[in-house]
């Protein structure tokens, strides 16, 4: 099945291009849009975006692999990013990570077999005052405790 933007995404794509004097500058927002539409930036999707942007696929791929928020392989419906930089580390983030690993029976970097959760460690989320901090998809969960981990994981459908 060939990838193709939905009409809504095409509209958003065109609005995005209008914000920049050069088309190329829209690459990051367009890739974020593509990822929202399809979940993972597969080689096929990279080719498609490259076509839309009039860029060589290799050029697009080099950008995709540079930034941490782009998914180059399949992830679960919920991507859990646990901050493990210093302020979070001083405030117990290792306990949070160990607890999630145990609950989901996966290691860092893995996805649950039902494709619901992917567990990742990430660098500073810029919320050190509420350490330890975890981001699940777009949302920050702050002042994490083990009880909170359980509550949050139970609440996600």
């Amino acid at each position: 099945m060939a990838v193709k933007f939905s009409p809504q995404a095409v509209k958003e794509f065109e609005e995005t291009l209008a914000r920049y004097p050069h088309k190329e500058a829209a690459l990051l927002p367009v890739l974020l849009l593509a990822q929202r539409e399809f979940g993972v930036l597969s080689d096929e999707l990279v080719q498609y975006v490259a076509g839309l942007m009039d860029l060589p696929p290799s050029r697009v791929k080099s950008v995709v692999t540079f930034y941490t928020l782009f998914n180059t392989r399949e992830v679960g419906r919920y991507v859990i990013r646990v901050c493990h930089t210093l302020s979070c580390a001083l405030n117990g983030t290792e306990e949070v990570i160990e607890h999630i690993k145990k609950r989901l029976h996966i290691d860092v970097g893995e996805t649950t077999p039902d494709k619901k959760f992917t567990l990742l460690e990430c660098e500073c989320l810029g919320s050190c005052n509420t350490a330890p901090v975890t981001q699940i998809n777009d949302r920050y969960y702050e002042n994490m405790t083990l009880e909170l981990v359980d509550q949050i994981l139970d609440s996600l459908e």
């Binding site: 190329e24 690459l27 990051l28 080099s62 950008v63 928020l69 500073c124």
Partner: peptide, 26 residues
């Protein structure tokens, strides 16, 4: 206009930011 990064510390360095804003690696 608001321009979203995509996860990169070095995009906060001013010329890295410019590269990123031009649609490149930061």
């Amino acid at each position: 206009s608001l321009h979203s990064g995509a996860g990169s510390y070095i995009a906060g360095e001013e010329t890295g930011l410019l590269e990123s804003l031009e649609g490149k690696r930061a």
